[in-house]
């Protein structure tokens, strides 16, 4: 059975995308204040709160707008508080993560829960980032960060996945008239 796409009008989608982009930008700025990398001593580790928005967009607006939101967020993040190299890393990680989550979500929604999707996304985000960094620095030793990051992607992915589950449940309650939107992942 084909999954029914959310029936929002074009302008509704545009407005929602803009709001979500701003939210993602805010969340990724919020992450700066959580000193996770001083707690675990792994440079570059973060909770991936912006991934919440990506997952939400993927489920509610479809993959096309999710990609747009992701790219916009990365560009603005780099322009506001980043560097060209950080743009490279966040885009490569984000695109790989979203592609993976889209594949899992589209291909095998029966076998994976939302938490699984988020963990896969987090792991792929780190893979993309590290691969890009390895090419950028032309050094294979950057990859030695990857095992630690992959291990940590399970708890952080579970966290964002759990938040997403709660979020989607609330969304179902707040907007009962839009129940058809949530049909597509009711089995999750």
């Amino acid at each position: 059975m084909p999954i029914k796409q959310a029936s929002l009008s074009f302008s509704q989608k545009t407005a929602l995308s803009g709001v979500l982009t701003a939210l993602a930008l805010g969340l990724s700025y919020l992450e700066h204040f959580i000193p996770l990398d001083q707690l675990i001593f792994v440079p570059g580790i973060k909770l991936g709160l912006a991934n919440l928005v990506t997952v939400f967009a993927l489920y509610y607006l479809g993959e096309g707008l999710a990609f747009c939101i992701l790219i916009c967020r990365c560009l603005m993040q780099a322009a506001l508080f980043g560097t060209p190299s950080s743009l490279l890393f966040s885009i490569s990680g984000g695109v790989l993560a979203l592609s993976g989550m889209w594949l899992i979500f589209r291909g095998y929604p029966k076998y994976f829960s939302l938490i699984g999707v988020c963990v896969g996304g987090a792991a792929l985000h780190h893979c993309g980032q590290i691969l890009c960094a390895a090419l950028y620095f032309r050094s294979i030793w950057v990859v030695s960060y990857l095992p630690v990051l992959l291990l940590l992607s399970i708890p952080t992915g579970c966290l964002t996945g759990g938040i997403s589950v709660a979020l989607f449940k609330k969304f179902r309650k707040i907007f009962p008239e839009r129940k058809h939107l949530t049909e597509r992942f009711k089995s999750l």
Binding site: Y111, F112, I115, V119, A123, V148, L150, I154
Partner: peptide
């Protein structure tokens, strides 16, 4: 709440980390 595929995914991530 977790499904069968999730555990395989976790296992795969752990194995990948170990392998690297």
């Amino acid at each position: 709440y977790l499904k069968k595929g999730d555990f395989f995914l976790f296992l795969f991530v752990l194995l990948l980390a170990g392998a690297i």
